[in-house]
């Protein structure tokens, strides 16, 4: 897959929808393209993060540690971004992400990512939207789980 195809993939991501093509090309060119085998881990929970991942193809699973053992909380597919929380607010990874199938991802280093956000306010807005959406979903699940326990 060449840069041109990667750019196509990036454009499908809502947060990049309004970013100039040449900037996306720059993002792709300066990011490392990484391939994972099924079962390989993109990053572990509690590590410090150095980059965010944009999935180009394949599927990955997000799992968190719970007292009852690992719990899968989401599955991610192409054109989704993962691992951005750790680099946005300098906290350790909040979950472990594992490839479910053969997976291609762009690994965007932290400083490039932050630079892009600073350069394109539109992107910041889209990130906020994505995060808020995710928070809403998580809250919903929490409510479900709590009511399931009968509290």
């Amino acid at each position: 897959m060449s840069i041109a195809q990667e750019v196509e993939c990036l454009r499908k991501i809502p947060m990049f929808a309004n970013v100039e093509i040449s900037k996306l090309k720059l993002l792709a060119f300066t990011s490392e393209r990484v391939t994972y085998k099924p079962g390989e881990v993109l990053f572990h929970q509690d590590e410090m993060g150095t980059c965010a991942f944009i999935i180009l193809s394949g599927e990955a699973e997000v799992e968190v540690r719970t007292p009852a053992g690992p719990l899968a909380v989401a599955t991610l597919g192409a054109s989704e971004i993962v691992g951005e929380i750790a680099i946005l607010c300098d906290v350790p990874r909040t979950a472990t992400v594992r490839a479910l199938s053969e997976l291609d991802a762009l690994c965007v280093p932290k400083d490039h990512f932050l630079q892009m956000i600073a350069d394109f306010p539109q992107m910041a807005l889209e990130i906020m939207r994505a995060l808020a959406h995710r928070l809403d979903k998580t809250t919903g699940r929490l409510r479900e789980v709590l009511s399931g326990q009968g509290v």
């Binding site: 393209r33 990484v34 391939t35």
Partner: peptide
């Protein structure tokens, strides 16, 4: 006697 392959995790 070779190069590390780019894009391997």
């Amino acid at each position: 006697f070779g190069k590390l392959v780019y894009g391997q995790a």
